[in-house]
């Protein structure tokens, strides 16, 4: 019996890295575009709106995720 451990390990590694990476990047995007909640900002009553830099970074994150989805579709079609 020949078990293809290498392929299984590869699936495991790739899945782990890509999942955690994508979720991380997407979360950064969400963090970048969302307001800091009142408690989080140390008792500030007015919630702080995200800065322009944060916004740009967030959009870059979302673009990266969109590219990943595109690559996914490419994998399905190919």
């Amino acid at each position: 019996m020949q078990i293809d451990w290498a392929a299984l390990g590869q699936v495991f590694g790739v899945s782990l890295v890509v999942t955690v990476g994508l979720v991380g990047v997407f979360t950064l995007g969400i963090v970048g575009t969302s307001r800091r909640s009142a408690e989080g900002a140390g008792g500030d009553v007015a919630a702080a709106a995200p800065t322009a830099a944060a916004r740009t970074g967030a959009y870059a994150c979302f673009a990266l995720c969109a590219a990943a989805v595109g690559y996914g579709i490419y994998l399905i079609v190919a």
């Binding site: 899945s15 999942t19 994508l22 979720v23 991380g24 997407f26 979360t27 969400i30 969302s34 800091r36």
Partner: peptide
């Protein structure tokens, strides 16, 4: 994969 991803996203989005 999902466990680690969930942990990470909760940590990153903390305080939001």
């Amino acid at each position: 994969a999902a466990t680690l991803a969930t942990r990470l996203t909760y940590r990153l989005a903390k305080g939001r």
